[in-house]
Design a binder for these strands. Structure first.
Lengths: 213, 213
DNA sequence: CCGTTTGGAGTACAAATGTTCACTTTTAGC
DNA sequence: GCTAAAAGTGAACATTTGTACTCCAAACGG
């Protein structure tokens, strides 16, 4: 079924059924998701996809699931799967002579949050001061994503409270106990006097470039 | 009820049922959304929020809507609003011995996307391959935030199409014309044969740490 | 040309949904 | 303590939901 370009009316009887119409359905879904961040119920999907029957909606969704664009929660709800967001990150290759990649309007819908935050309720941000972790490529002004937890493994980059101040260091331990290693020879290794006050583990990093411009 | 900004523990002695238990409901919702990318139906929400009645769910959602965390589609479906994705920014200082100083007033929030994206419609993401920009502290696997534009200034880090492949380099120019400098002596300077096919300027960086753990 | 496959329409129905309403419990202000 | 507001319960109900089923027409592959 096609849609009249001017009136928007459905043109019955016009063939459009081919395996390659799934990409079109997918685009509709992606656009809707970009706007509202949800996959609606069958009846609404029926309208969005311009289908006449809910059963057709079910078949479309099932096909998209087999292709890896959608999945279902344990409760049976439809949710976007990893592949659903793929097109929002630019591909590595571009046709020579045609340097503009897909300029679809949905590029921004991949929330950077989704990339960087796994457990929102335990996640907070911290702006890095100083260059004591430059060896780990974390610099002054960077914003680190911290997942709150009381314990961590040696080798992880953690945020800890030292002398009432939060600091980012690499956690390590030796025969004498826990220690916080800066990744910059200009700074001393910290050995907490009492208990180690761990705030959480650094799970990600966000940096603004081109600050002045 | 307050939530300890560092440990995340619910502060004891504070009764459970109060207007400020909404943060707890919000956290549950945020975590569920981070996992499945949808707001489920009332009956499922009832279980997630540990409520006994669906009507209570409705009231919670309505409260969160008034606070700006949720909104509704024209069809009435619940969807996350802007504030839903904001994160707390930790203060730099912590009281020694009592690492929970800043009350709600001191805590600010920040949307990661706001931090990194200025012009959503012209912004896209690109995963970095190779270590040719390690001197600028951009490494394999990092995601760069690219603002699409056809021109750039010398000294800016840009994304350009070279031989049909996207590459991240620092833009420069000399007497002979434009050139693309890697920030790694192991790589050669690129001098585009014809016109320089510029895709955009790198305005930010996102990195996931602790990938394996 | 004909049978098969595929994408969709249409119908039917048990189950689930969102909302309302009256009611109870808890909390906060005085 | 007393009281009013806030938060949550539980039942009721019209609507909507997802799915199973049959049927149909176009596309496909010899």
């Amino acid at each position: 079924m096609l849609i009249h370009p001017l009136t928007g009316a459905l043109l019955p009887g016009v063939p459009m059924r081919t395996a390659s119409s799934d990409p079109h359905y997918l685009s509709c879904l992606q656009d809707y998701y970009a706007r509202w961040r949800c996959i609606p119920a069958y009846e609404k999907l029926r309208r969005i996809l311009h289908l006449a029957s809910r059963s057709a909606v079910g078949k479309v969704l099932e096909r998209l699931r087999l292709q890896g664009f959608l999945e279902r929660t344990p409760d049976g709800d439809w949710v976007p799967a990893r592949r659903f967001f793929e097109r929002f990150v630019a591909g590595q290759h571009v046709q020579a002579g045609q340097p503009a990649p897909d300029t679809e309007a949905g590029l921004t819908t991949l929330l950077l949050d989704d990339l960087l935050v796994e457990t929102p309720s335990r996640t907070l941000l911290l702006t890095v001061r100083g260059d004591s972790m430059s060896g780990a490529n974390i610099f002054e002004g960077d914003v680190v994503i911290v997942e709150r937890q009381a314990t961590a493994l040696p080798g992880e980059i953690v945020v800890a409270a030292v002398d009432g101040e939060l600091t980012v260091k690499r956690l390590d331990r030796d025969a004498e106990g826990w220690l916080l290693r800066p990744e910059n020879p200009a700074y001393p290794v910290l050995r907490p006097a009492g208990a180690l006050e761990l705030m959480g583990v650094v799970t990600g990093l966000a940096r603004r470039l081109r600050r002045g411009a």
